[in-house]
C-alpha cells in the first residue's frame, strides 16, 4: 500500500530549464497545495468539516473520467468516509461519499468558505446527531457559557 516501496526512476542532478505554460484565464490552484485538507467554513464562519477530497467529472456530468480527451472539472467537495480511505487505502463506494456541490463554495483562501449554512448539509449530520441525542440533552448544553 505504501507508495514508498515502489521503484522510481533515477533523476540526474543537472536538468534543463522547462518553459512556463501559458497562464490560464482564471485563478490557478494546485489541488493538494491549496485545497486538500483545508478547513471548510460556512457562511457564518462556523467550521463545517475539512476538504477531504474532490469529485471530478466531464462537462456533461459523466464522472467516469478515463482520459484527457475532453476537459474535466471539479464539481463536488467530498468529505466523511473518504478521509478514512485516504489514511488506510481503498476507496469508499459512491453511495458513501458525502458531497458538497462546488456551487456552494464562495472563496478559497487559508480556509474554504461556503455561501450556505452548515446546518443543512449532509457533511454535518454526525454533529447534528451528537447535538440532538447527547449534548443537547445535558443540562446547560443549549446555553451560553457564563
Amino acid at each position: 500500500m505504501s507508495p514508498r516501496v515502489r521503484p522510481r526512476p533515477r533523476v540526474p542532478d543537472e536538468l534543463p530549464e522547462l518553459p512556463p505554460h501559458l497562464r490560464p484565464a482564471g485563478r490557478v490552484l494546485d489541488a493538494r497545495l491549496h485545497l486538500l485538507d483545508r478547513q471548510i467554513l460556512d457562511v457564518e464562519d462556523v467550521p463545517v468539516t475539512t476538504l477531504d477530497d474532490l469529485h471530478v467529472s466531464y462537462a456533461d456530468g459523466d464522472d467516469d473520467v478515463t482520459s484527457g480527451d475532453r476537459p474535466a472539472f471539479v464539481d463536488q467537495v467530498l468529505t466523511g468516509p473518504v478521509l478514512v480511505t485516504r489514511v488506510f487505502g481503498g476507496r469508499p463506494p459512491a453511495s458513501r461519499l458525502v458531497r458538497i456541490p462546488w456551487s456552494d463554495v464562495v472563496d478559497v483562501g487559508v480556509a474554504v468558505r461556503l455561501g450556505v449554512r452548515g446546518e443543512g448539509l449532509d457533511a454535518t449530520w454526525v454533529q447534528r446527531w451528537l447535538r440532538d441525542r447527547v449534548i443537547g440533552r445535558i443540562p446547560g448544553g443549549r446555553h451560553d457559557p457564563e
Binding site: P24, G26, V28, R32, A59, V105, V106
Partner: peptide
C-alpha cells in the same frame, strides 16, 4: 499534484475548477 484553473462553468459564485 493536480493543477486547476478557476475557468470552468460558473454555477455559483466561483467558476468550477478545470483540470489544467
Amino acid at each position: 499534484d493536480v493543477r486547476l484553473a478557476l475557468d470552468g462553468p460558473v454555477t455559483g459564485l466561483m467558476a468550477a475548477p478545470r483540470i489544467v
